[in-house]
Design a binder for these strands. Structure first.
Length: 919
RNA sequence: AGGCGCGUAGCUCAGUGGUAGAGCACCACCUUGACAUGGUGGGGGUCGUAGGUUCGAAACCUAUCGCGCCUACCA
């Protein structure tokens, strides 16, 4: 194997082989395990959120696959109606043409073309991440089969009365010119004005009512003014009329509880056609609706001629000018209000009265709520179910029609009389309703909300409505891995429609992971200029390219300089690539229970070093496997120790997977690899394997253990860092003659693979303490490693002596000891640096090596600390209620600590005294 | 207006009733044959604050401050 760890070389090598071999497909054996991918937009490129999510799903998939389950990670992409249509429209704009110019059919051809050409970016990028999805089952929401499922669900819901068409106020995006659902409207607090307008009261010359409004232009559509029924200020006007300025219409003064007496003037203008609340009021009072805006939010013909054709904001200015001129603008106040904006276009959304299709959600929500209540679907972390309940228990009907071209066209046809026929296709519509060829039918122009098809994803991808083997095997799926921002958009709707149509919940668990933010906790966004591309973290990127990426195509060009400055400061020489494996390990360590995950490049660099460490450790193991002849093997204490530690690690890894704590999986394996295997075990093997006089059986025992431990470790690490582990595994197999084509199909270690061995653990703990004691003396006294020390042991027990004999070579090697001498009982050593190990004192005679003053200082600090601890423990034990109430084992432990501290303190005092003697 | 989350070392984060931890950064020493992408030792935290429960609280409860998010119709 290569001497240096080079992730780029390794990572290029394995993915294609895995995919070609068909190893990502379900094995067909074992208990099924299935994850469906949250389908990324075909328009998309991989961002940090995908990378985190894909890492989690891939780790789970690989883990369960290695545990022998029949594992499917179902991939695919989403047609993303609005997003995709916008991308292609922008493209056409650059070509000097437009959607309207091309016409529906040719436009759709262009979208498909674009999808075929550019829609593969994200799936290519997923391969770079190592995602072990079954590509042979890749689906797209607009595939014929999935579209069939969409039609089927629509028709069945319609036939049950759960889909209906109606004219109501909807959220209308005047730039995209489509209806959007409540969820697609984001309300943001924005500074604005509150205008106080005078409406003259009819028949009471000079008197007027003053209404307060944030949207003066809508006054042209007012059909009433309202006051609170118990508001004494205005009671006498109720039932009278005011003359609506500019429009010059008489409108009634009505009384309605909706009005808040405290706000503004306590008089509200009512515009039923342009406000959700006013619409309700209008319904209650039988008010007419006067819509004054068209679908681009320009004033229409219902408005006075002077305003027709004006954009709503231009009209606002003119209305205000005209009111001012007429002396009807009483005052203007600053006011902060919530402005609804479309999540795609960013423009202010208008309530507009239009015909739309709706799903009646209450009947679907009830069983979906029950499924989470009784645990058929479990949220992880559990508290997310509260968010889910909150929304589901107040759910509103879902507007599913969109005035777009890209998407699933609504399967409804109209005849010339405006009768509507819903069916799977036109032929069925004719057949069902006995419509002859003479009857002309026209299909509804609208398409469905993208989330409608996404809601079917867990069963449509598996073949529904057909009863396919895949559906029978993998539905319900095991876990949905997603982020909390789409619990309403997607998770809730999948549960509703999955239960309705596939006969069961779509997944047993919903694992909600955090949102990836930058290291300051800021959301990553283009305009903040803090975007990181996962592939740049893998491959590295120079500063110029990074700057270009962050500033190119920026909408707000004034931000450019700031973004450049910050980027230069944070990455003065670009980003050094860390490789896929290190990036994955970083994401795994971000899979905590929190909702924010701050991405810190320093952590990724740390994990890159970890991969390097693993590489070099493996290189050492491989280099040690020769030089013995076949024969029986005998395990030494160190061998038994590392196997015992391995046993604990295996148990913890499984436990942490069970609770989706991939951060802890990563941590446990990191610590074991670095701080047990590398820091101690590999070092301990050197004394055996490097000793020409060592017994061959012992050497074989150590070699065997090296292979066992490294093998198990590579398997356990594989779900997190698939590339480097595969590389190392194949090398290991080459050296050991093992016949294995890949680590990804090896059985995941189970607890019984390694044996717990308390005796070995205690003995190696002793050895470590011995070595660390000497190292501390060496470190605190600044003794170079080249100075070998003579060590004397006082008060050694029989066990201590036995252990010293057994590990003499190890101790000398690890602590840099020249000679170990065991002192006869009662021997007094005058000046020596001291370390304590149980009752034994490890003495390093000073003999000019060590400065007496600094040694006294060192021991003094230790003594002070020990006395502190001792005092604390004694106080505890002096407390009668502690002794009476604490569990026996805790009290017992405390007693042992006191004894230990007392002994230490006495030893330290004695040593200090002897140091004093020396001077 | 409700609901939720977070606050632990300089930074990024684990730790959920029993001796405060990791990575990175910092200081000192060390090129020892897996690894200087390394090794060894060290410094650094009254766990946001105040009460309470408990023999014992970073953890549980209450209040409070700070930051963030999500729902909701105040014109």
């Amino acid at each position: 194997m290569k001497k240096e760890y080079r992730p780029a070389e390794i990572e290029a090598r394995h993915y294609e082989r895995w995919e070609q071999a068909g190893w990502f497909a379900p094995s067909g054996r074992g208990e099924p395990y299935c994850i469906v991918i949250p389908p990324p937009n075909v328009t998309g490129t991989l961002h940090m959120g995908h990378a985190l999510q894909d890492t989690i799903m891939d780790a789970l998939t690989r883990y369960h696959r290695m545990r022998g389950r029949n594992t499917l990670w179902q991939p695919g992409t989403d047609h993303a109606g609005i997003a995709t249509q916008m991308v292609v429209e922008r493209l056409l704009e650059r070509e000097g043409t437009s959607r309207k110019e091309l016409g529906r059919e040719r436009f759709l051809e262009r979208v498909w073309q674009w999808k075929e050409r550019s829609g593969n970016t994200i799936v290519r990028q997923m391969r770079r991440l190592g995602a072990s999805v079954d590509w042979s089952r890749e689906r797209f929401t607009m595939d014929a089969e999935l579209s069939r499922a969409v039609g089927e669900v629509f028709v069945r819901l319609y036939e049950e009365g759960l889909i209906y068409r109606g004219k109501r106020l909807v959220n209308w995006d005047p730039v995209l010119r489509t209806a959007v659902s409540d969820l697609e409207v984001l309300s943001t607090e924005e500074k604005g004005k509150l205008w106080h307008l005078r409406y003259p009261i009819e028949g009471a010359s000079g008197a007027h009512l003053v209404v307060a409004t944030t949207r003066p232009e809508t006054m042209l559509g007012d059909t009433a003014v309202a006051v609170h029924p118990e508001d004494e200020r205005y009671q006498r006007w109720v039932g009278k009329h005011v003359r609506l300025p500019l429009a010059d219409r008489l409108i009634p003064v009505i009384a309605d509880e909706y009005v808040d007496r405290e706000f503004g003037t306590g008089v509200v203008k009512i515009t039923p056609a342009h406000d959700f609340n006013d619409y309700e009021v209008g319904q209650r009072h039988n008010l007419p609706l006067i819509g004054v805006l068209d679908d681009t939010a320009r004033l229409n013909d219902a408005a006075p001629a002077r305003y027709r054709g004006l954009d709503r904001f231009v009209a606002r200015e003119r209305v205000l000018e005209d009111l001012t001129a007429a002396g009807l603008l009483e005052k203007v106040e600053d006011h902060v209000s919530k402005i609804p904006r479309g999540d795609r276009s960013g423009v202010v959304v208008e309530p507009l009265l239009t015909d739309q299709w709706y799903v009646k959600t209450k009947p679907l929500a009830e069983p979906a709520i029950a499924a989470v209540e009784d645990g058929r679907v479990r949220f992880v972390p559990d508290n997310w179910k509260n968010t889910y309940f909150e929304w589901m228990r107040n759910i509103q009907d879902w507007c599913i029609s969109r005035q777009l071209w890209w998407g699933h066209r609504i399967p409804a046809w109209y005849d010339d009389q405006g009768n509507v026929y819903v069916a799977r296709d036109e032929a069925e519509a004719r057949a069902k309703h006995g419509l002859g060829a003479a009857v002309k039918l026209r299909q509804d122009d609208d398409v469905l909300d993208t989330w409608f098809s996404s809601a079917l994803w867990p069963f449509s991808t598996l073949g529904w409505p057909d009863k396919t083997p895949a559906l029978a095997t993998f539905y319900p799926t095991n876990v949905l891995v997603t982020s909390f921002d789409i619990i309403f958009f997607w998770v809730a709707r999948m549960i509703m429609l999955g239960m309705k149509f596939a006969g069961d919940v779509p997944f047993r668990e919903v694992y909600i992971h955090a949102l990836v933010r930058d290291h300051e906790g800021q959301k990553m966004s283009k305009s903040k200029g803090n975007i990181l591309d996962p592939l740049d973290l893998i491959d590295g990127v120079d500063l110029e390219t990074l700057l270009k990426k962050r500033t190119e195509g920026l909408m707000q060009t004034h931000l450019q300089a700031g973004i450049e400055r910050v980027t230069r400061k944070e990455f003065p020489s670009g980003i050094e690539g860390v490789g896929t494996d290190a990036l994955r390990l970083t994401f795994a360590s971000l899979a905590t229970t929190g909702r924010d995950a701050r991405f810190d490049l320093a952590r990724a660099e740390g994990f890159h070093r970890f991969c390097n460490k693993l590489w070099n450790a493996s290189s050492y193991v491989l280099s040690q496997l020769g030089g013995t002849s076949p024969g029986a093997a005998e395990l030494g204490v160190a061998d038994r120790w590392i196997l015992s530690r391995l046993h604990v690690v295996i148990r913890e890894v499984h436990a942490n997977y069970a609770t989706y704590r991939l951060d802890l999986v990563a941590q446990v394996l990191y610590d074991f690899t670095w701080h047990e295997l590398c820091d101690w075990y590999l070092e301990l093997t050197k004394a055996v394997l490097g000793d020409p006089n060592a017994d061959d059986a012992r050497k074989r025992g150590t070699q065997q253990t090296l292979v066992t431990a490294l093998g198990a470790l590579l398997k356990m690490l594989h779900p997190l860092i698939p590339f480097v582990t595969e590389e190392l595994w194949l090398e290991l197999c080459k050296h050991t003659g093992r016949d294995s084509a890949t680590v990804m199909l090896e059985p995941f270690p189970v607890e019984s693979d390694a044996a717990h061995d308390a005796e070995a653990e205690s003995e190696i703990d002793w050895l470590k303490s011995f070595v660390i004691g000497i190292r501390q003396i060496r470190g605190d006294s600044n003794l170079p490693r080249s100075t070998a020390l003579n060590v004397q042991l006082a008060d050694a027990t029989a066990t201590d002596r036995e252990r010293v004999e057994r590990h003499r070579a190890q101790l000398e090697r690890l602590a840099g000891i020249a000679r170990i001498e065991i002192l006869a009982p009662g021997t007094v050593v005058k000046g020596a640096a001291t370390a304590l190990l149980g009752g034994m004192r490890i003495l390093v005679p000073l003999a000019g090596l060590i400065d007496v003053a600094s040694e006294r200082d060192r021991l003094g600090k230790q003594l002070a600390r020990t006395r502190d601890d001792l005092a604390k423990s004694r106080r505890k034990l002096d407390n009668q209620s502690f002794v009476a109430n604490a569990p026996a084992d805790v009290v017992e432990k405390e007693n042992a600590r006191v004894a230990d501290f007392e002994q230490r303190a006495a030893q330290l005092e004695q040593q200090l005294a002897r140091l004093a003697d020396l001077q």
